[in-house]
């Protein structure tokens, strides 16, 4: 029997049934003698079992009628436009994950909520407002932070929500001020914050939302990204060109404080 050196590559081959039968015994012996490789092999085998278990249920689901109809020619091959565009939006999201590099951070996916475009609109409006006003030196806000109480009551009245300007000092951001903006058919409050290096983020809150969603939104370029959440009766987005982890930390803090005020 020919002896050869095994490597991690053989772990994959053995797992996938690609290791030649006459090498199997030698491979098993090698695995027994290498605790680290043996552990690795066991983890990969467990992951594969988990993958299979996670997706095997799909085989037992009833096949959607529309799919059978395509094959049987009972339906016109033309499909409604909204449906047509949907799967590649999921592809777009997948592509984003790749660009995200490490990718894992925001990648824990709870279903891609692609049917509802309300969050698209919210995030786009919030990003547009941020791009315009965060770049403004002298006219970034209508009401400055020095007049915070008035700012809060004015925006609350205009938008129709009980708003507070969250305290983001723990994340390194101080309130600059706020302004009132149009949003969809209604109004939005924009709150602008700045850190000691001059980096700016904004919070965009509107009372218009029927949908429930949560996520992040951004272009592939280095432009600002939005982390948004929508619930019945309000929608909020946190926008900035920060590293995702930091933006997520800011959003989490802002979310907690805004929600506490809204529900008070």
């Amino acid at each position: 029997m020919s002896r050869r050196d095994f490597s991690e590559r053989d772990i994959h081959m053995a797992l996938d049934g690609e290791l030649p039968g006459d090498e199997r015994t030698a491979y098993e012996a090698w695995l027994e003698a290498n605790a680290e490789m043996k552990a690795k092999s066991a983890r990969y085998a467990a992951d594969r079992a988990a993958l299979r278990a996670a997706f095997n249920g799909v085989l037992d689901e009833p096949v959607p009628v529309r799919l059978n109809k395509v094959v049987l020619g009972e339906a016109s091959v033309v499909r409604a436009a909204p449906s047509r565009s949907r799967w590649w939006l999921a592809v777009a999201a997948a592509a984003m994950l790749v660009i995200g590099g490490a990718g894992g951070y925001l990648a824990g996916i709870g279903g891609l909520g692609l049917e509802n475009r309300a969050e698209d609109q919210l995030a786009e409006e919030a990003i547009a407002a941020h791009v315009i006003y965060a770049a403004e030196k002298r006219h970034a806000v209508e009401v400055p932070a020095s007049d915070k109480d008035h700012l809060q009551s004015w925006l609350s009245n205009q938008v129709g929500l009980k708003l507070v300007a969250p305290d983001l000092a723990a994340q390194g951001f101080q309130l600059v001020g706020g302004r009132l903006l149009p949003a969809g058919q209604g109004k939005a409050a924009m709150l602008l914050y700045e850190d000691d290096k001059g980096a700016r983020i904004s919070l965009f809150v509107t009372a218009e939302s029927a949908a429930k969603a949560k996520g992040t939104y951004g272009s592939e370029e280095d432009g600002p990204a939005a982390i948004y959440w929508l619930d019945k009766g309000y929608g909020c987005a946190v926008v900035g060109s920060l590293p995702r982890e930091r933006l997520a930390a800011v959003a989490k803090s802002a979310y907690g404080q805004l929600l506490a005020a809204l529900q008070s």
Partner: peptide, 13 residues
């Protein structure tokens, strides 16, 4: 542009 939902455990909705 694409959307990414947050972590599943936090995606209350």
């Amino acid at each position: 542009a694409a959307m990414l939902p947050l972590e599943a455990s936090e995606a209350q909705a």
